[in-house]
Amino acid sequence: MTPGTTHPLVAAYLEELDGLLAGIEPRERADVMLGVREHLDGALGATGGTDQEVREALAELGPPQLVANEAYAGRQPATAATPGPTPVMARSWVPVVVAVLTAVALLMAVFIVSSMGSVVSSSSSSSSDANGVITQEQTSEVLAGSPLIGSLAALMTTLPLWATVAVLVGVSPLWVRREKVIAILLIPAAALLLGLLPQVGWWLIGANGVYGGAWAALILVLLGGGAILTRSTRKAAARVHHPAA
């Protein structure tokens, strides 16, 4: 590899483009990638160029999506004549199944942790009523143990869904490496967040912090997780190659 293609921005550009070209034949994909790589080597020279020069060179190349569109647009007549098989893991059902499984897993995690969370808060309040003096030690113990148990329970229950998502995303060419990591970590991260934030709230504020933390975790998982999932699914779906489209 020459200096021109080792710049992080260049590497990111090439990786994104390569991901977008997942639907075309490997030899053509390699040829396009070689052309673009060579172009950047030539444009940036032996020194690799400054950050500014790299940005300009990439801007002149245009967005990876535009380059990929051209690659697919040119293939349409050929694919229409000889409909080549789209790789199984690059078909349109993959992002849909991944999205549905992830959404179900996230909702399950929310349900499981929140149902265990309510047990936690009630048991902590009753113990403080009943035991008076040694309240603090007991409540903190209860709160320290249970949220993580909630996380664990959520992780265990969603394991089959998560494993399926991980395999599909891991194998499918529709996600680039960075997106794969995010898509695979989403479910366990949500489960941990749901368990840990009430705990953090407890440490910071006390009993009210538990509710604050629980609500924050719920909102983060539902809105943030939902947003990440939507974006990831859209990107993957956009890379599905429709010969007729």
Partner: peptide
């Protein structure tokens, strides 16, 4: 041509 990158799929096509 407005974006240089679109040349390469085209060249690949011509070569194929």
């Amino acid at each position: 041509m407005s974006s240089e990158g679109t040349l390469y799929p085209l060249l690949t096509r011509l070569r194929t």
